[in-house]
Design a protein around this nucleic acid. Structure first.
Length: 840
RNA sequence: GCCGGGGUGGCGAAACUGGCAGACGCAUCGGACUUAAAAUCCGAAGGCCCGGAAGGGCCGUGCGGGUUCGAUCCCCGCCCCCGGCACCA
């Protein structure tokens, strides 16, 4: 018997694949393409089995599709910019570039040792000028289209380190490094106008039929469309109007006050016009400060104060007080609302707290409570009361009518609002893509001309973690000439959010070396969209939404001719150890290399796919890995036992003269082909695909034991001679088994494939085809239920007619005790087949 | 609070969405091989009860109802767990 040495096989076949460039691909219009992609990796240094699970899932898919005849693009790359490398530089002084490429190098080795079939010649790293040049290119296209613009927004600022902090650098409201309480600061920053595509991004979700429902719902909620109306409440005694947004115009007769966000523009005006402006402003400031602190710790108490001004309800003509309230959001809707305490829980709490009037104007059927009796707002639909001409109308319908009336009277209009906000992309960091903009005293904001891209990161920079943007401290970078007037100018010193990098990298893989464009549109047209995309749920919203946004922008720029980048999405579950997510800080990581040394890549791959379906979380188990290794050994012994006899020439294809046992083996073989193919290709239930292969192996062991060769655990007796049909059947079974196991255990399978006498490698061997005739059984066991309980099983010819089956069932001896002397009410023959008898 | 997804043997799971619940594996136990052990091969195994045994009976997919010849699957009402959003007017 040949010994199974997985580590040697790993090396041998990995070298072979590399030498043969087995996974490289070019555009080929003659073959159907398949783009299989796993979310690229942040090069943190070491991949643990949790990360690696995702790459294995993608690899099973890629390898299988190759054998199914597809031209498979399966690339990999690195999401290489980011804060951790810069933080490390601040701590250790190592330049981010050095640590990043060191990490990439190590992780690439890990993936190669796992035998993941990547087209490595297409590898990209987002931190290279060749890549980020096109971040800048896309930015400029956005700028031209008005999709990139400057706006004031709030950032976290550490007053001691004098630096901007990312949200994850703020721990319990304090700076991660020095512990100082973080303050908010307003900065001019670049934003992408993703809201311009809000409706399209929402609509597009309906076409994503191969995405997990969960992710679609999360995106839908994130975009948060809400249909309502914008109405103007004139300010009493002033030539002013407060615009409010409401989804419940039907409750307007119950609007007993108006609320402004503390940041609302009119607040400052009211302050200035008030008797004591300073006191007024102090109160507003107090809210803003309280608000911020409370947000950091959790729930905030609703608070507000009366501005002393009054607004006129445009429907009732009634004057109502205008208050400032801390819970009104400045950046949603208009930053002002009409408060209807009877029918909105927040307004209700506010009104009770400050003794503001509560007026019921919508009643659910049978509800006769007075406003004083309410213990919470009645937020549901109902019939309007005390609502002038609208009294007696019902909630959903009356909204349309009231909006139309408002429009006619020029006091408002229907409006759609989105929760989705524009995407602030400026980061005051070094390790990212420089934003290609120039500030000139004379010409203002000037984009860097395309022929001057990329704006490269200066190699030298101080990583102190203090002060403004690190790039602002590099004069050679900052000082430049204005492209328009040639005079002295300053560069933008902020870099881009790394989500920009990952919003189009899948397009770059189509044409990774293009120096003129992000990618050749023809290559994009051939390879895109990504047919199968897998990665963690943590990217369910941002990364996937931004990618969908970029795809549409690039479509409008003329580079693409479709809307959605990812056809099928799989969100893989995490791997837990001791019930917790693996992380370096918890010290519970399982290092794939350790497992490789012990069992080889294939056992690890197989185990991780076998424990549970890919979407599910799994708990790591050494014993489980051991079990998968045992299964591979079992396969190895089986093939090794038969290889020599079965590999020879002159063995005919399986013919009609098989014994029952041989036919049973063929049946199992084809049934396994059917199940494994569907499980891998359609259902992505990789665990059940493996279990069906295990069943086949078990059956082949049992069959072997009945042949002159004997079972695989024994030496083949000298002079054992098999029926030629046995050899045909075994050859068919073993070939199919080895091919089908190869996506999971490619190294072992290649070796076995060679042992079975195949000269060509396995990576593009044709996937076996299912033959329904072979798989069909001649006899079937039919369970028979009496009043819902299985009372007998009868064996009948598979093609027995339904009528004959009924007769056989009712005549069956083992059933008699259950039906004798009773009246047969019904006999149901169900598919399966299964017979259900109803007696009484 | 709202929105998703789940609760199946000792454990991971399966049942291809209304048709034999627990495939496949892990752990366990028994047998074979071995001087012995490991490895390997073969076998047992949801719970309770009857039987010496072969075998048989009842219960069983979080809980309570319903629809159906038949429910892990569909419907109604609860309980628990895991994710996401969280004053979005």
């Amino acid at each position: 018997m040949t010994e199974y040495k997985p580590q040697e096989l790993d090396r041998k076949w990995q070298q072979r694949w590399t030498a043969e460039r087995a996974f490289e691909v070019v555009v080929d219009d003659a073959r159907p393409k398949f783009y299989c992609l796993e979310m690229f990796a942040y090069p943190s240094g070491h991949a643990h089995v949790g990360h690696v699970r995702n790459y294995i899932i993608g690899d099973i898919c890629a390898r299988m599709k190759r054998m199914r005849g597809y031209n498979v693009l399966h690339p990999f790359g690195w999401d290489a910019f980011g804060l951790p490398a810069e933080n490390a530089a601040i701590k250790t002084g190592t330049h981010p570039e050095v640590s990043t490429f060191g990490n990439i190098n190590h992780m690439k080795g890990q993936l190669q040792r796992l035998g993941i079939s990547y087209a490595w010649e297409r590898e990209i790293a987002t931190c290279t000028p060749e890549y980020y040049k096109f971040n800048q290119w896309i930015f400029l296209k956005m700028y031209e289209r008005g999709l990139a613009y400057r706006k004031r927004s709030t950032i976290n600022w550490c007053p001691v380190d004098n630096t901007v902090l990312a949200n994850e650098q703020v721990v319990d409201g304090a700076c991660w490094r020095c512990g100082t309480t973080v303050v908010q600061r307003d900065l001019e920053q670049w934003s992408f106008r993703i809201t311009a595509y809000a409706e399209e991004l929402l609509k597009g979700l309906e076409t994503l039929t191969e995405w997990p429902e969960k992710v679609v719902v999360m995106q839908r909620n994130w975009i948060g469309r809400s249909d309502g109306a914008r109405l103007t409440f004139p300010v009493a005694g002033a030539d002013l109007g407060i615009e409010i947004f409401t989804t419940r115009i039907d409750t307007i007769y119950g609007a007993t006050f108006v609320l402004l966000a503390p940041e609302h523009a009119m607040v400052e005006r009211f302050a200035a016009e008030s008797a004591d402006p300073d006191a007024f402003r102090a109160r507003v400031q107090q809210f803003r400060a309280l608000d911020r602190e409370a947000r950091l710790t959790g729930a905030i108490e609703k608070e507000g104060f009366d501005t002393g001004r009054r607004a006129i309800n445009p429907f009732t003509g009634e004057e109502v007080p205008i208050w400032v309230a801390n819970f009104v959001l400045a950046d949603y809707g208009t930053g002002a609302i009409m408060a209807v305490p009877a029918h909105d829980q927040r307004d209700f709490e506010f009104a009770r707290k400050y003794n503001l009037p509560i007026r019921i104007v919508v009643r659910a059927e049978g509800d006769t409570r007075s406003a004083e009796e309410l213990v919470e707002a009645a937020a549901g639909a109902g019939r309007l009361v005390d609502s002038g001409e609208y009294t007696g109308s019902d909630t959903p319908a009356v909204i349309t009518r009231m909006i139309a009336d408002a429009e006619r009277r020029g006091i408002g209009r229907g409006e759609v609002n989105y929760r989705l906000k524009d995407w602030g992309i400026s980061r005051q960091r070094y390790w990212g893509t420089p934003i290609p903009m120039i500030y000139c005293e004379k010409d203002g904001i000037v984009p860097v001309p395309y022929d001057q891209l990329p704006v490269e990161l200066p190699k030298v920079a101080q990583f102190t973690g203090r002060g403004d943007s690190p790039l602002a401290q590099v004069p050679e970078f900052v000082n430049c000439t204005c492209p328009t007037c040639g005079g002295p100018a300053r560069r933008e010193t902020d870099t881009m959010d790394t989500f920009v990098d990952s919003s189009w990298y899948f397009l770059r893989f189509c044409d990774p070396t293009n120096t003129e464009l992000p990618f050749d549109p023809a290559a994009g047209k051939y390879w895109m969209p990504v047919d199968f995309y897998s990665g963690g749920v943590e990217h369910a919203i941002l990364h996937l939404l931004y990618s969908r946004f970029f795809t549409r922008v690039l479509r409008d720029v003329g580079l693409l001719d479709f809307d959605e980048p990812f056809k099928r999405l799989l969100t893989q579950g995490m791997v837990l150890k001791d019930g917790a997510v693996m992380s370096k800080s918890k010290g519970n990581v399982v290092d794939p290399d350790t497992m490789l040394e012990k069992y080889g890549a294939d056992a690890l791959r197989l185990y991780v796919m076998f424990v549970a379906p890919p979407e599910k979380e799994v708990e790591w188990s050494d014993a489980g890995l051991e079990g998968s290794f045992r299964f591979l050994l079992r396969v190895w012994r089986l093939v090794d036992h038969w290889a020599e006899t079965v590999a020879g020439d002159g063995i005919p294809a399986c013919g009609p003269d098989c014994t029952d046992a041989e036919r049973a083996v063929r049946r199992k073989t084809h049934e396994t082909i059917r199940r494994a193919t569907v499980d891998i290709e359609e259902r992505m239930n990789l665990n059940t695909a493996i279990s069906s292969l295990m069943e086949l192996v078990n059956e082949l062991y049992a069959f072997s034991a009945t042949t002159p060769h004997g079972g695989p655990s024994r030496e083949t007796p000298v002079g054992a001679v098999e029926r030629v049909q046995t050899l045909s059947v075994m050859r068919e079974a073993l070939d199919a088994l080895v091919i089908m196991i190869s996506p999971f255990a490619p190294h072992t399978a290649e070796e076995l494939w060679q042992m079975l006498g195949h000269a060509e490698g396995l990576t593009r061997a044709p996937w076996p085809t299912f033959d329904a005739d072979v798989a069909k059984a001649d006899e079937v066991v039919v369970p028979v239920q009496v009043n819902g309980k299985v009372r007998a099983r009868i064996t009948v010819p598979a093609d027995l007619a339904e009528e004959a089956l009924r007769e056989r069932v009712l005549a069956d001896a083992s059933l008699q005790p259950h039906i004798a002397g009773k009246t047969i009410r019904k006999v149901v023959v169900a598919k399966g087949p299964l017979v259900s008898v109803v007696v009484s």
